[in-house]
Design a protein around this nucleic acid. Structure first.
Length: 220
DNA sequence: GAGACGATTTTCT
DNA sequence: GAAAATCGTCTCG
């Protein structure tokens, strides 16, 4: 907990696409402590993933992909490692990372980040935030803070201006230990599939959006 | 083409 | 803790 805001970016590397081409629930769990980076016109913004959720077409009526391909969700069925962006509640963009092999509609919703790079820019994007974690402690918030929207729909996250990086295994273990382990809960804001334990977060991390009552810890 | 609703955020009580 | 804001997408007729 001591070196809370000192994320060592030298210990992150570009992922293998095979990382995303796996069971989406595992991908979601393994993406904790991943790093999202976006090179905007005004500089680089980036943050550490501290909370996410899995969505799958197989057993999950809460997933957009559950009822088949539509114009909105088609990216979920495409190759893994790409960005699925969608707009909801009239205001908010959500950022998802496509998982599983091509043809399977599955993705991981990134729900909260710890701000690391470009924090001044995030404050400009989200002037209503009160503390640093408010910049990115929610799916709509982090999309606004990193300036993500329809332009990022379908973008390949393996490389380029908008990408995801993974920590070295030893460094990841250290981060998880510092933040009190990983908590598994049901997902937020769903009416269907609400009972599925597909949400993951760093237990003691202050940037987590919502803490639920039903919790069971999973060490990793 | 109309109507309902949502993987949310903010503000007010 | 509750409710409004707000509009693209999906479903049905």
């Amino acid at each position: 907990m001591t070196d809370f805001y000192k994320i060592d970016l030298s210990r992150f590397h570009k992922p293998d696409r095979a990382f995303f081409k796996r069971d989406v629930v595992k991908v979601a769990k393994d993406l904790l402590c991943g790093y999202i980076k976006h090179a905007t016109r005004h500089g680089i913004v980036g943050g550490l993933i501290v909370e996410d959720e899995a969505y799958s077409m197989y057993d999950d009526p809460g997933a957009h992909s559950f009822r088949g391909v539509t114009e909105r969700n088609k990216v979920m069925f495409g190759p893994p490692g790409h960005a699925y962006m969608y707009f909801t509640y009239g205001n908010h963009w959500m950022f998802n990372i496509v998982a599983e092999k091509e043809g399977i509609g599955a993705a991981v919703l990134v729900r909260a980040l710890q701000p690391v790079e470009g924090i001044a820019y995030m404050w400009e994007r989200r002037p209503k935030a009160k503390k640093e974690c408010d910049l990115t402690s929610g799916p709509g918030k982090l999309a606004a803070a990193l300036n993500l929207g329809k332009n990022e729909y379908g973008v390949d996250l393996m490389d380029g201006e908008f990408s995801v990086l993974l920590p070295e295994p030893e460094y990841r273990k250290k981060l998880i230990r510092e933040y009190g382990g990983v908590t598994v809960t049901t997902r937020i804001g769903l009416t269907q599939g609400a009972e599925l334990p597909y949400r993951f977060y760093l237990t003691e991390h202050p940037c987590v959006s919502v803490r639920k009552k039903i919790q069971k810890t999973a060490d990793k």
